[in-house]
Design a binder for these strands. Structure first.
Length: 302
DNA sequence: ACCCAGGGATTTT
DNA sequence: AAAATCCATGGG
């Protein structure tokens, strides 16, 4: 019996501290943009690409730990959008009471810049699902079809990468359904095949105008305007993408038109004209504000 | 125009 | 303990 494992068998992590200002880590990681961050023993743990990541808040900012070790941290800076001028963005928001209240409620909330495939796949799975269930489906999918990143990366069990389009394209519809995704299975499979066979280039979308990228995404099965705009905003960073889900719809209705109910077209016209050049950012602040205001939707319809 | 198709935590009855 | 609710896309 050896008292200690051989030193060469110990996982080698790398750590780096980041000075942060105006960064609301919890709101950023739990506001329905990404589905794989978990609060474990005082830190946020997740997987970005093929890196296991642990983020621990400190008085000055944040300590990041990653496996396998890296020397260049640009990928993390980019994912977390650490270096964007947030206050300039917030200054472009409308100076109305709902937006100012939203800023007050979650100042420091940022839009992540996620991998396009993971983002597209996750939001195909998100339709008609609540955040908890989306998390569960993603977890199952990763455990079955992702690669092991770190054998004990979670509190219990290994951390997995998000499965590639190529890997998911090899799955049958039945295998995907078995991950509890129901009628979304054929949609996920179709998009995985389109990417794997090169019929859809997720890189190309980055260089296209918003409208063109949106119409490309909307041609995919299971992708409507809401899911398309989520991908355009959370993976590509199109500042004008504005996903309207029931929470945002409710926010607009209740905060901007409390007197009488507006038709859907009226709401759509309003969001297009009202929120300025960073409408997508504004949407994320409204979304989070609305959820903190009223966490249980069933008791709030009127 | 309506109804359904997974599902499972959360909330209401 | 049982029943209703949530959620957004496509198809009949």
């Amino acid at each position: 019996m050896e008292a200690y494992p051989h030193i060469e068998n110990l996982p080698c992590f790398s750590k780096k501290t980041f000075l942060l200002q105006d960064y609301h880590l919890k709101a950023t990681l739990t506001s329905g943009q990404a589905f794989r961050w978990r609060w474990v023993e005082g830190s946020w743990r997740g997987v970005i690409g093929k890196q296991w990541v642990q983020l621990t808040e400190t008085p000055e900012g944040m300590e990041a730990t990653t496996y396998p070790p890296v020397s260049d941290w640009q990928w993390l800076i980019h994912y977390l959008q650490l270096e964007i001028p947030l206050s300039e963005i917030l200054n472009t928001f409308p100076k109305d009471p709902p937006m100012q209240a939203s800023i007050e409620a979650c100042r420091g909330l940022r839009l992540l810049r996620q991998d396009p495939w993971e983002c597209l796949a996750s939001f195909i799975l998100s339709s008609t699902k609540q955040i908890v269930q989306i998390q569960q489906i993603c977890e199952t999918l990763c455990a079955r079809y992702g690669e092991v990143i770190l054998p004990n990366g979670w509190k219990q069990g290994p951390a997995y990468s998000f499965p590639s389009a190529e890997r998911l394209a090899m799955c049958s519809e039945v295998e995907l359904r078995d991950c509890k995704m129901g009628f979304r299975a054929p949609s996920l499979r179709a998009s995985a095949l389109a990417v794997a066979e090169g019929r859809l280039s997720l890189e190309d979308l980055m260089h296209q105008p918003l409208e063109a990228a949106r119409s490309t995404l909307c041609q995919l099965r299971g992708v409507g305007p809401k899911i398309a705009d989520c991908v355009l905003l959370f993976a590509y960073g199109f500042p004008g993408a504005f996903p309207v889900d029931v929470w945002v719809h409710r926010a607009i209705q209740q905060l901007y038109f409390p007197k009488r109910r507006q038709k859907k077209a009226r709401i759509e016209a309003f969001v297009r004209s009202h929120f300025g050049p960073n409408a997508g950012y504004a949407q994320q602040y409204l979304f989070h504000y609305m959820r903190t205001l009223n966490p249980n939707p069933s008791s709030s319809h009127s």
